[in-house]
Design a protein around this nucleic acid. Structure first.
Lengths: 199, 199
DNA sequence: CTATTTATGTATCGATCGATACGGAAGTAC
DNA sequence: GTACTTCCGTATCGATCGATACATAAATAG
């Protein structure tokens, strides 16, 4: 049976897509409800709050959308079927490609989406931080797996190598936003991955 | 001859220091004038604007202060007297040490101080971006110098290697703010600098 | 039809934003 | 002393912030 009540007049998914783009470009706090309502189809405040709850809830939903689409480039870090080296290299290359793609804002929403937070944005800042932490732990798990399998020597400094890849990964967002193109990032990944066999 | 007029009742330099700390922790946009006035000695709005012009001008002055103090860790990138490798390595290690120092906010003001900017913060965002760009060019200059001197092979991919160090450098800010300690960052620098001789 | 449910449009809420007006206070110049 | 300069405190500006109140419109249920 069809749902009762007056049907929604705007496309909720399209509105969510537009909100993602705006949050991605500007970040959480400087993006105002007026801007959001405008790009989301010129909807009214009432429609906005009825459909999305609040600015904070909308952002959380936007982060979910990001993670299920463009943000999937880091998912491969959690793949323990492929080789650890390939998991990390592919994550870096896919991230560099995605974050420099001109079809959407530059950089990474998880890294740069809520980096300047007052008290009102503290919660969403913690949300993104927890995602970054999980990614870092996935890198550590891959490095550890490589040592266990003998792909990296037993004397490998696991934490140091993990942090090297992790710091480089989050750096891609600032680099991309500063205008670095994909080709240069890809060659920088050539270099950083060169460490793997020369260890 | 002494300056005429009623003397200022607050310590301008101390107020500037306090503003630096607040901007460093929160970033430009989410830091309000009320917060600033409070940490700057509970000064009045009139005193604030008479002494610093505006929030934006204050931030620019704060950036100058930062660059002349904690931010000097990157100055060594411009030193063409020491070896290129040492210039880059010292920059990374000093940055890691400074940005994880608990005596002030974590991370780097130049990287994270205005990363979420609406239209009002666009100007300061560009200011920080131009500083990052200059630092990147300094890295490139060092890499080029290393190739010219034979310290790196002639076939070296200059732009790729530059971007690798540059991306890692800006990544330190997010890593430090996410809680990475100095020791782990230092070991990650051990790894990334290992590329230099193994090229 | 009436009742119920959900969405919409307008008008506006209290709080806060960055920034000023205005008058008085505290110093020097003469 | 008076004139001048600079700073301070209070009160407040217009704009915008995120969020709601309230009445109305458009659908289904019976």
């Amino acid at each position: 049976m069809a749902r009762t009540g007056r049907p929604r007049e705007f496309d909720r998914q399209a509105a969510l897509d537009a909100a993602l783009t705006l949050f991605w470009r500007q970040g959480y706090e400087p993006t105002s409800l007026n801007q959001l309502k405008e790009v989301m189809g010129g909807i009214s405040p009432t429609s906005f709050y009825a459909a999305f709850g609040s600015k904070e809830q909308l952002f959380e939903e936007v982060v979910e959308l990001y993670r299920s689409t463009e943000g999937r480039v880091t998912d491969i870090l959690f793949d323990e079927e492929i080789s650890p080296r390939l998991a990390i290299e592919r994550c870096l290359r896919q991230s560099a490609k995605m974050q420099t793609d001109p079809s959407h804002p530059l950089g990474c929403l998880v890294v740069s989406g809520a980096s300047n937070c007052g008290s009102s944005g503290e919660k969403v800042g913690q949300l993104l931080k927890s995602i970054r932490r999980k990614n870092n732990e996935a890198i550590r798990s891959q490095v550890r797996r490589a040592v266990a399998s003998g792909d990296l020597p037993g004397r490998t400094d696991i934490d140091g190598l993990t942090e090297m890849f992790g710091t480089f990964l989050v750096g891609i967002s600032t680099a991309a936003r500063d205008g670095t193109n994909r080709a240069d990032l890809d060659r920088s990944i050539d270099h950083i991955m060169g460490l793997w066999q020369k260890n």
